[in-house]
Every structure is written in C-alpha cells, then in structure tokens.
Nucleic acid binder design. Structure first.
Lengths: 111, 111
DNA sequence: CTAATATACCTCGCCTGTCAAGGTATATTA
DNA sequence: TAATATACCTTGACAGGCGAGGTATATTAG
C-alpha cells in the first residue's frame, strides 16, 4: 500500500485500540475495517497486526477470547480493557500533539 | 523531550530536508532551530541527527562542506541538492497523506 | 472433481531507524 | 580552574514492521 513503514511505526497500537474502542473484533476484520476506512490506502501486514495483538495483550491494554463459530475458521476476538481505553486517549492526544509539531516543521509556509 | 521516538521515526529526514529548504546550515544549528520552532517540545538526539546526515548524503539528497570559521569549533555545513528538493516535496506530500489517513483511523469522531 | 480464492490464524528472523553512552576539540563564563 | 556551551563523531543495543513461511476451513470457478 501507499503508506511507508516508518510513517506507520508507533501508530499501529493506536490504530488497533481505536478500532476496539468501537466494539470487540478479531484480527482479520479489524484489518478489513482499516482497509475500508482508508479507501484501500492502508492495510496492516499480518505479521505486524498479530505482533501488535501480542504486545497489547501482554501489557493489559486488550484481552482476548475465542469466538464460538460452528462453521468457518476460528476467530480470536479482542476487547479493549479500561487500561487500554486510558492508553488510547493518551496515544491519541500524543498523536495530535506530534502532528502539530510536525506540521510546523515540515510545512513551515502553512498552518 | 515530550514526543515519543516512534512518532518521530520516518520524519527525521523530512524535518532535516525542510530545514535545508530554507538555507544551508549545520547540525547543531539545525537542531537549535527545531527546538526553537517547537517551543522546546522536540529535539533530535545527536546520534539520530548525524546518522540521518550520513544517510541523506549517501543517497544524494544533501551535500556537505566544511565552514571556514577561524575561531570556535569547526562546522560541517549541509545543503540540499535538486534531488533532495524533489524528495522533500515527495515526503511532505506523503506526510500529509498519511496524516489524513491516521486522522480518520485514530480520531473517527472528528474531521 | 479440483484448483483457486477467501477467510482466519500464527511464527521466525531480517532490516532499519532511534538513542544511550561514549568520545574529541574549542571558546566562554563563573 | 571548573563548568558550560558550542560543535563534531561512532558503536552497539533495542524495538517495531514485515517478508516468507506455515496451518486450517469454506466457497467459487472451470
């Protein structure tokens, strides 16, 4: 896709948490949602996605449970924890902050 | 400083090129300018800064020359090349693009 | 029937950018 | 004369993204 790896780095967790703020979901679907919301311009690589889930669960920002599908492939659902909600707000605020700084530095002739 | 490493990652080159779009400058001063422009909220670590200079020079986006100070520490000045100017516009556009995507994903309830 | 595609999960190991820690040298200020 | 500011530099550790590989089920096309 079009977005560079290094632009994404550090935002993966925020993106995932933001998705889980809406509702519980599973890996594949979360990724589909991202593709859809960005008009196909961004897609998390599977390795990136699942690595992030491990990381986020380890520190207690999300928790997981197996879905009870009786057909099709099994799904591992994730839900955001209260700690994760806190972290989401923190990361989102941090993102806005850094965005403003970068705007000043990268586009000095604009806002 | 307040901004996280991973938020910065991938933007260092863009920030440096943006500075050199204004005028030739040297490492220490570029960093001072960044600190000043962000009200002390962002400062590139020296290792990061000088690594970036090597990287950018290697691919031909910047070129360097020693200043002719006859007092004080020596200064290595950098100037942006035509190739670097192109790259700056490309990176700046990419940044705006990715910023909009992230806005949609991270702050779904806003613009 | 069978191959391809979509859904759905996972791990290993490489690569690359950041940075802590260390270093050198000159000029000014306390 | 010690500390601080200016000014440069490198090494090695670390962490996140991802290519490449794997598993398994369901559907669709030929």
């Amino acid at each position: 896709m079009s977005i560079a790896s290094d632009m994404l780095r550090g935002h993966t967790d925020t993106i995932i948490l933001a998705q889980l703020m809406q509702n519980d979901s599973y890996g594949y679907k979360i990724n589909r949602a991202i593709v859809e919301k960005t008009g196909g311009q961004l897609e998390l690589k599977e390795a990136t996605l699942y690595t992030a889930f491990r990381r986020l669960e380890q520190v207690g920002y999300i928790s997981s449970y197996w879905g009870d599908e009786n057909t099709g492939a099994r799904r591992r659902y994730y839900s955001i924890t209260p700690l994760g909600v806190e972290q989401y707000y923190r990361l989102a605020a941090e993102w806005e902050q850094s965005m403003r700084l970068l705007q000043r530095l990268i586009r000095p002739d604009e806002g």
